[in-house]
Write a protein that binds this DNA or RNA. Sequence first.
DNA 1: CAGTTACGCTACGGGTCGTAGCGTAAGGAC
DNA 2: GTCCTTACGCTACGACCCGTAGCGTAACTG
Lengths: 221, 221
Amino acid sequence: MPSRPPAEPTRSGRPRSAAADAAILEATRASLVDLGWSKLTMGDVATRAGVAKTTLYRRWAGKNELVVDAVAVLFDELELPNLGSLAADVQAVVLQFAALLERPETKTSLMAVVAESTRDEALRGRIRDSIVARQKRLVLRGRERAQDRGELPAEPDPAMAARTADLVFDVIAGAVVHRALVSAEPVDTDWARRFTLLLLSGLGAAAQPALTTGQKPGGSV
Amino acid sequence: MPSRPPAEPTRSGRPRSAAADAAILEATRASLVDLGWSKLTMGDVATRAGVAKTTLYRRWAGKNELVVDAVAVLFDELELPNLGSLAADVQAVVLQFAALLERPETKTSLMAVVAESTRDEALRGRIRDSIVARQKRLVLRGRERAQDRGELPAEPDPAMAARTADLVFDVIAGAVVHRALVSAEPVDTDWARRFTLLLLSGLGAAAQPALTTGQKPGGSV
DNA sequence: CAGTTACGCTACGGGTCGTAGCGTAAGGAC
DNA sequence: GTCCTTACGCTACGACCCGTAGCGTAACTG
């Protein structure tokens, strides 16, 4: 997924090795696991991939871009199951996302590239396209299903609908990331259940968990 | 705030210069503003502070620890106002936190040190004590006030109360951080208002903002 | 075949790291 | 005041990584 210039589809000359691409990204993930973000070096990745260091620089501008691409594919694993209720769907996707954050490749690098992106507009765009977009789809699809089930009302204003989706996305992703990486405590089933209840029913209801289950959200969790 | 060994309160010999401490931390923040996290170097900080590089290493183990201490004091600015309702208090503290995250010193370094902490237990503890604890107090105090006002029920089980406070803390801090740094969109008054409504009343109520304002939360916002 | 592009390899200047060594400065104990 | 102890400034150093230039070779196109 390096940023090839979208120029001529058929160029003359020797084509780029797709095998090298795959080997480099795989080596990057392996190096992240062994060394972590801060001690990962381009030279090490090149050696692991069996590739010259110059080949890396011909495809990626640097460590940041390389790691984003190496980690992005992991987010393809995220899927929104159809478990019959909004609460169950939210809880399941929360646990999926948490499992992804538990992997050492993502754990050590996600926040690092986000930090770098605060001073690099191009990198921010790459993160948005490669990682954030993959997650946000889940929120949009989850809302669709909930509206089909009648759990959520239809939103007539599309602008407001988009803003609400963005809000919900930041709340879910932010809470899971903060729990897993900042508080550094486990995102287990119990936490996911309690978070889902809070998200759907609010703080007042979340304080009396057993009493408010009969309404809409807290069904078969 | 360097980690002095809590040994003898009165030691012989030349004492450490408190002025140097202050100058170093100030220089670190300035360097973060100018260079950002990744390009900040120990040598640059030493030069700005008018101090030898070795002096830095005598007090801090490295860049990570130094930056945590330099940024931690900024979190002392956070205060929980007493605006008369839980919703107003939450919204105000969200905007305060967002303003703090907008500062270039914190914006570029907070996520970076968190990322480092995933491979450094000692650093994680330092972050917890210096930064996270300062934020979490606000949640605990906010709940107290809300309970005094009758907006939240008293929680008999202290263990459950602590877990709920942790959950709420991760949701608030995580959402704001995610909005500001990952989505990279502004945390303005409108977003804070909508987030507060979602937190207090849940997803179902948040979809009809104007209709559910008469209950408890959305008072004078 | 020639033309074009990718690759591996080596080498390089430039920068940062973290530490060692030394002489000097600034306090406390007496 | 005179020791004693610790902190400071300074220089120098090896080690490491960065990112690039140069060159010969490999692979694919027409």
